[in-house]
Design a protein around this nucleic acid. Structure first.
Length: 254
DNA sequence: ATGGCATTATGCTAATGA
């Protein structure tokens, strides 16, 4: 099964990109983040016409997540049951016996922002909920825009970014608590030492052309899925398209 | 060098993203 995640930064704008990528990459499952549209504006018909089913939870202007799948989508959970939240950031479902958890993790903005403790609280709630989820579903994939670069080699200029939002020690500790549940960073299994391999590039300063990016979009696999992992890649092609998202899709085959 | 660029909305300026 080919599973993927992509922060599309507005599905209104990026629907053609998503349809093109579904046709060319043909994933079984694609988690989307940052839909930035209301449920009533979700392009359900266009995605179904492409041969996919969909579960989604939209929000005007900000956030919003979806799971697109070639196979039946079962037991959908919307947002963290243990975390009261106005923001639409998480969707989970069972597909082909695999528990898929798609998340748009809070950005945090900066360490002195009120959004930073919200990010850490969200991560704590996710970790607590996910522990129970993994007991119920041994085959589980946690994927999405984590807004955390786990290692210095995931950052184009680690010196300049040292201690800042997206790489700060409390965020990285939260990331490794998720790993501690028994999850594995699929990309790092395939490419343990690869440097300058990013999933997001700033729109400004010709960030993509100069490869000034961060690896913040991840696929984390439980042990049974890790055992069947055959490939994991970041697809940089859509980032070269006209009017791209600032994120690239990341996919794995399990 | 706290700029740069893209998206959205009680829109033409401001907030947010990462």
């Amino acid at each position: 099964m080919k599973i993927a995640t992509w922060n599309v930064n507005s599905l209104n704008v990026r629907l053609p990109h998503v349809l093109d990528w579904l046709a060319s990459a043909a994933p079984d499952v694609l988690c989307l983040q940052e839909l930035k549209l209301e449920d009533k504006k979700f392009p359900k018909e266009a995605i179904e016409a492409a041969g996919y089913q969909v579960a989604f939870m939209g929000q005007k202007t900000y956030n919003g997540v979806a799971i697109i799948s070639k196979h039946p989508i079962e037991d959908v959970v919307y947002n963290l049951p243990n975390f009261e939240d106005e923001q639409k950031r998480l969707i989970a479902a069972t597909i082909n016996g695999v528990r898929i958890v798609g998340g748009y993790f809070p950005n945090g903005q900066s360490l002195d922002s009120e959004k930073y403790p919200y990010k850490l609280a969200w991560l704590t709630a996710l970790t607590e909920w996910l522990a129970g989820e993994m007991e119920k579903h041994p085959s589980l994939a946690l994927m999405g825009d984590f807004n955390i670069a786990p290692y210095d080699i995931d950052v184009h200029d680690p010196k300049a970014w040292e201690g800042q939002n997206l790489v700060s020690p409390p965020e990285r500790e939260a990331f490794f608590k998720l790993i501690g549940l028994g999850l594995t960073d699929a990309y790092r299994v395939k490419y343990p030492d690869a440097e300058k391999m990013f999933s997001w590039w700033d729109y400004r300063m010709q960030g993509f052309r100069r490869n000034l990016g961060m690896r913040i979009d991840h696929i984390l696999l439980s042990a049974p899925l890790l055992a069947s992992l055959t490939a994991c890649e970041i697809d940089k092609e859509p980032r070269k398209w006209e009017r791209p998202s600032d994120h690239a899709p990341v996919w794995a085959t399990v």
